[in-house]
Design a protein around this nucleic acid. Structure first.
Lengths: 98, 98
DNA sequence: TCCGGTGTTCGATAATCGTCGAACAGATCG
DNA sequence: CGATCTGTTCGACGATTATCGAACACCGGA
């Protein structure tokens, strides 16, 4: 069975998105998604924080609509919502990822 | 005498800038600077928060390098550091101000 | 069916943050 | 000089946040 996550917000709130990206840990996560091609499982990110902390950060990013997560079997794969982000805030992702 | 403010940071830190912009009150302040032509004195902004709170928010924006403040006589005039922001994060300001 | 791997949830804790009023410091003006 | 206006600084308070370990739920393979 494939457990589903709550759907992303209908409209991306600028303060929520900026707040989600303002944290160093989360920004590093998003940067990895940006540079990767394809989804990345939660456990495969370069980070030092505890597992529960990581889960918390993914939740923030998910609820802001920055990333989407889909479960497949035992793993939770994350993707950057590039199209939605570019549609809502054109140029933002390019601006903050040099 | 014209009191001087600490100089803006040499390089704009992305997390500091995003954190500065992530607060609704500060975002509203920056938006007013964006839409205005010329500097705006601290007391002339559309806001509801107390004077001390406003001063605190300006400090955050100043230290992040988002705005610059110069004192002239009794007033403190604020400007958006558009060129520096565009140089450091091209497209960011345009992205978040629809 | 049991076991190891993956991710979430639940307190708890320490730190940060936004907010305010009061007090203070300059500058301007009468 | 004295009054007033503008903005900063200083605690203080409450809310939010980042962090962790432990416990839990789920899936896959042996």
């Amino acid at each position: 069975m494939t457990t589903t996550y709550p759907s992303p917000p209908a409209t991306l709130e600028v303060t929520a998105v900026l707040h989600a990206l303002a944290d160093p840990v989360r920004l590093h996560l998003v940067r990895q998604l940006r540079e990767a091609d394809g989804a990345i499982a939660c456990g495969r990110f370069d980070t030092t924080v505890a597992k529960s902390t990581l889960s918390h950060h993914f939740k923030i990013l998910r609820e802001a609509g920055v990333i989407a997560t889909h479960r497949e079997g035992g793993n939770a794969f994350n993707v950057l919502r590039t199209e939605e982000m570019d549609a809502a805030f054109p140029g933002l992702l390019n601006a903050i990822f040099p």
